[in-house]
């Protein structure tokens, strides 16, 4: 059984990555915070008797499932909202404006001043958010969490072949997105 200190160390080690990974999946910082907190709590409460070596896979699985739960709830909420809004007719001020969600380039950022690294980061983050969810999951687990193919397959609940395919497609999509901005795929930090 893992000690409280071991749990604390483990969470400290993974929390920031988990937060960013969740932000890429749900595209909302506050929701991502909630999901990470829920996942931490579930790990602490339900798997207190597990060894610390089992925590990385367990935590990733909990994080993935909590994120999926969020999407399921969101889907049901959206369904009800759509149904109710069709009854209420003109929603007035509450009406959703699609322009609100369009990504707008930050005008205050001056490309001459901004570091090339952060520019690249913006491109990568956008590309990761655009990836299909399974490809993003596979990429994050396999490369960011450094799990092997079998572990990734176990967390994702699919075959090892699917993991390889998802990973390959994700890397190619990211490389393509970088290429579109004049960045080479292998040496990301150097402009072509």
């Amino acid at each position: 059984m893992a000690t409280t200190q071991e749990l604390s160390d483990f969470l400290e080690q993974v929390e920031r990555r988990a937060f960013k990974q969740t932000v890429y999946a749900v595209r909302d910082d506050h929701v991502a915070q909630d999901i990470v907190q829920d996942s931490m709590l579930k790990l602490a409460e339900k798997y207190a008797d597990k060894q610390v070596s089992e925590y990385p896979m367990l935590f990733q699985r909990i994080l993935q499932n909590t994120t999926k739960d969020f999407w399921r709830r969101q889907k049901v909420r959206n369904l009800w909202t759509t149904l109710l809004s069709s009854f209420s007719g003109n929603a007035g001020e509450e009406e959703h404006d699609p322009l609100d969600t369009i990504d707008v380039e930050d005008e205050s950022s001056n490309p001459m001043v901004q570091l090339e690294k952060s520019q690249t980061m913006v491109i990568i983050e956008k590309a990761i958010k655009k990836l299909p969810s399974r490809q993003r999951e596979a990429f994050i687990l396999r490369y960011w969490e450094e799990m092997d193919v079998a572990e990734t397959a176990a967390v994702m609940g699919c075959s090892q072949g699917s993991v390889k395919t998802h990973c390959s497609r994700a890397v190619h999509a990211l490389a393509k997105a970088l290429g579109q901005h004049g960045l080479s795929a292998s040496g990301i930090l150097t402009r072509e």
Binding site: I124, R142, Y143, W144, V171, A175, I188, L189
Partner: peptide, 8 residues
Amino acid sequence: TAKNIVSL
């Protein structure tokens, strides 16, 4: 490529 992206 993945390694470079992950390091960033």
